[in-house]
Computed example of a mutant assay.
Amino acid sequence: MENSKPVKIVLPEIKNPIFIEGYPGIGLVGHIAGNFLAKELNMDMIGYVESPFLPPVTLVLEGKPNPPLRFYGKDNIIVAVADIYVPPTLVNEIARELARYLKEMNAQTVVSLGGMGIGLFKEKMEVWGVGAREELNRKLEEAGVKVLQYGSIMGMSGKLLWEASREGLDAYVLLGETFGDRPDPRAAANVIEALKKIVPIEASTEPLLKEAEMIEEQLRRMHQQMEEARKKAQQQYETLYL
């Protein structure tokens, strides 16, 4: 029965959509990128996910109640964002229902955005990706994205890639390298720059880069203070036992 489905996707009919998913994950890369795109592209909330298995949470944004799993849209572009952790079983159901909707709407492209934790900082943090088919991987390479040959992609990004590929859709996952222990707007900017080479969107990532610089400066100062405190403690220790 239709009413017994654990998940309902509430979305208007949008023909030939470009669908971008930005759920929370490593470094909150997808979450930051998805919310940034919705704001930067001046999108309106156009839908949401409904399920009795979601936590009883309402988000207040700009003084208005909002569902925690929602869709923003403008023209034929849809951005999916989530502000809560989604249990794995529910991820499976949401991805399956999304893929069905996108197949029915004859989606042009489906792209999931996320992070790849590498546990270190590099001068140039790369973007990795994988497509649903070999020709899509070639398109990623042309966009300067390193194609993932082996590994696993967890959460909504991985499941949506699989479900969309089963429906024969042009689907990708883009993963920005990130240290992995903090929100990373620089990695989000990197995946958006890669996204712009795959789908026709225009969004300046300058605000994200400025935010990244602020966070990095705060971390630098914090590490400097910790190092100074460590040296002072060491000096006191050496003075005490000389």
Rank of each mutant, 00 (worst) to 15 (best):
V147N: 04
L208F: 14
I153W: 03
T205C: 12
M222Y: 12
E228N: 03
T178I: 07
K210Q: 14
E227W: 14
E211N: 03
A203F: 08
E211G: 01
E206R: 13
L209K: 09
K232V: 02
E216I: 02
Q218N: 05
L174I: 13
K232M: 11
E142S: 08
A203Y: 02
A194W: 14
R166G: 12
M226D: 01
P183G: 03
A229Y: 07
E211Y: 11
E202M: 00
G158I: 10
E211F: 13
L140T: 06
I192Q: 00
Q235D: 10
R186P: 00
R220C: 05
A189I: 09
L161S: 04
M214I: 15
R186N: 10
Y150K: 11
Q236I: 15
Q225N: 08
Q224P: 01
E141V: 09
L219V: 15
E228Q: 12
R182K: 12
G151W: 05
P183Y: 04
L219W: 14
R138A: 05
I198E: 03
E206I: 15
M226Q: 09
L140D: 03
V173R: 00
V191L: 07
E211M: 13
E193F: 11
L208T: 06
E141N: 03
R221C: 01
S157G: 15
I215Y: 10
G144D: 03
E177S: 11
T205P: 13
E213L: 12
A171P: 14
E213R: 09
T205K: 04
S157M: 10
G144T: 02
D184I: 11
G144R: 02
K232E: 15
G168E: 06
K139T: 11
A233H: 01
P207Q: 05
M226C: 00
G144M: 07
Q236N: 10
E217M: 09
R220H: 11
G144N: 07
A189D: 04
S204T: 15
V173P: 00
E211H: 07
V199F: 12
D181P: 07
A143E: 06
E167S: 10
H223W: 14
L140R: 02
G155Q: 09
L160S: 08
P183T: 04
K139Q: 11
E177A: 12
S204F: 11
P185W: 01
A164V: 15
E163R: 10
R182S: 10
E217V: 04
P200Y: 11
